[in-house]
């Protein structure tokens, strides 16, 4: 049990990193990774929403959809839950914890359409994880996402100062830098066997 949880943790952060090897959540990865502070904010918001979304979608799938033979409705149900949930969290944070809202608030609405969140809830079901494993996978997939964003914000601050040919300025150079960061993450692929 402990061993399998440890493997899930390591593979979610390094080997199957959501951004760099599964290509989920590329939009926020490219859009919100210019500065360390916003990378951390977005990362924290994603970890939070991923864990909570998994905590809600898992019981819904195994408690409501599966017993009634409605497994095929998982995409519709999950995306609705995530959209609703994000809205709820935003309203609650605003009322209950204004300081936290100030730091995470702007990132929350961006998360509804972040495919990493829908992706992690669907993958937890596909991989047949139990409830605890699902939560751990969601949490560490979020950590992996945050790690990629934070690392990449460092790379981008160097790119800002570099003299890049006009054609490659902006997105092309960012994508090529991402390719090199992803290359370095490939070194982890022999980690777990």
């Amino acid at each position: 049990m402990m061993k399998s949880i440890f493997i899930i943790m390591l593979s979610a952060v390094f080997v199957d990193n959501f951004v760099l090897s599964k290509f989920m959540g590329i939009c926020p990865f490219l859009g919100v990774s210019k500065k360390l502070s916003s990378s951390l904010g977005m990362g924290a918001a994603v970890i939070f929403v991923m864990v909570c979304a998994t905590a809600v979608t898992y019981p819904v799938y195994h408690g409501i959809l599966e017993p009634n033979g409605l497994e095929y409705l998982n995409t519709v149900a999950f995306i609705l839950i995530i959209a609703l949930f994000v809205q709820l969290v935003e309203i609650m944070l605003k009322k209950v914890m204004p300081p936290l809202y100030d730091s995470l608030g702007v990132y929350l609405p961006l998360i509804t359409t972040n495919c990493a969140v829908l992706g992690v809830t669907l993958l937890n079901i596909d991989n047949g994880y139990n409830f605890v494993e699902s939560l751990i996978n969601a949490c560490f997939a979020g950590v992996g996402f945050a790690l990629a964003l934070v690392l990449f914000s460092g790379v981008r601050s160097k790119l800002e100062a570099a003299d890049i040919p006009a054609t490659f300025k902006g997105i092309p150079s960012t994508l090529i830098a991402a390719s090199i960061v992803s290359l370095s993450f490939m070194a982890f692929s022999g980690f777990i066997n």
């Binding site: 760099l20 997105i171 960012t174 994508l175």
Partner: peptide, 12 residues
């Protein structure tokens, strides 16, 4: 995955 980022960067 690294090749994916690279090719897309070059195409754009």
């Amino acid at each position: 995955s690294a090749g994916g980022f690279f090719v897309l960067g070059i195409i754009i």
